[in-house]
Amino acid sequence: TTTLTYTDEEEARKAAEELKRRGITFTYTKRGGTWEIRIK
């Protein structure tokens, strides 16, 4: 499992869109002031 952490929502959203485009499965979690993208 790879976890990407972002403090900028815009960056996190761009990363999530890129992963979706590649067909990669991930979970997206907001934790306080950070956003976590966990790639399975």
Rank of each mutant, 00 (worst) to 15 (best):
T1E: 12
T1P: 09
T1M: 13
T2R: 13
T2W: 12
T2L: 15
T3M: 10
L4F: 13
L4H: 06
L4W: 13
L4E: 03
L4Y: 14
L4P: 01
T5V: 14
T5A: 05
T5G: 02
T5R: 12
Y6N: 00
Y6R: 00
Y6I: 02
Y6V: 01
Y6P: 00
Y6S: 01
T7Y: 13
T7I: 08
T7S: 09
D8S: 14
D8T: 12
D8N: 14
D8V: 11
D8P: 01
D8Y: 05
E9M: 05
E9D: 03
E9R: 06
E10T: 14
E10C: 14
E11T: 12
E11Y: 04
E11H: 07
E11M: 09
E11C: 12
E11S: 13
E11W: 04
A12W: 09
A12R: 01
A12K: 01
A12M: 07
A12N: 00
R13M: 13
R13Y: 07
R13P: 00
R13Q: 12
K14F: 07
K14G: 06
A15P: 00
A15I: 08
A15R: 04
A15K: 13
A15N: 03
A16R: 04
A16E: 02
A16Y: 06
E17A: 13
E17M: 11
E17R: 11
E17T: 08
E17D: 11
E17L: 10
E17P: 00
E17Q: 11
E18T: 08
E18I: 10
E18P: 01
E18H: 08
E18R: 07
E18D: 12
L19M: 04
L19Q: 01
L19H: 01
L19I: 02
K20E: 10
K20F: 10
K20R: 13
R21A: 12
R21I: 08
R21Q: 08
R21G: 06
R22V: 05
R22T: 04
R22N: 07
R22W: 08
R22P: 01
G23K: 04
G23V: 01
G23I: 01
G23D: 03
G23Y: 02
I24G: 01
I24C: 07
T25N: 13
T25Q: 14
T25V: 11
T25S: 14
T27D: 10
T27W: 07
T27N: 05
Y28C: 14
T29D: 06
T29L: 11
T29R: 08
T29I: 13
T29N: 08
T29K: 07
T29Q: 09
T29W: 06
T29P: 00
K30H: 10
K30I: 07
R31K: 14
R31M: 13
R31C: 13
G32P: 04
G32L: 06
G32H: 07
G32I: 04
G33F: 10
G33Q: 11
G33N: 15
T34D: 04
T34K: 14
T34W: 13
T34A: 11
W35E: 01
W35M: 03
W35V: 10
E36S: 02
E36T: 07
E36R: 03
I37W: 00
I37A: 00
R38Y: 09
R38S: 13
R38C: 15
I39M: 04
I39F: 10
I39R: 01
K40Q: 14
K40N: 14
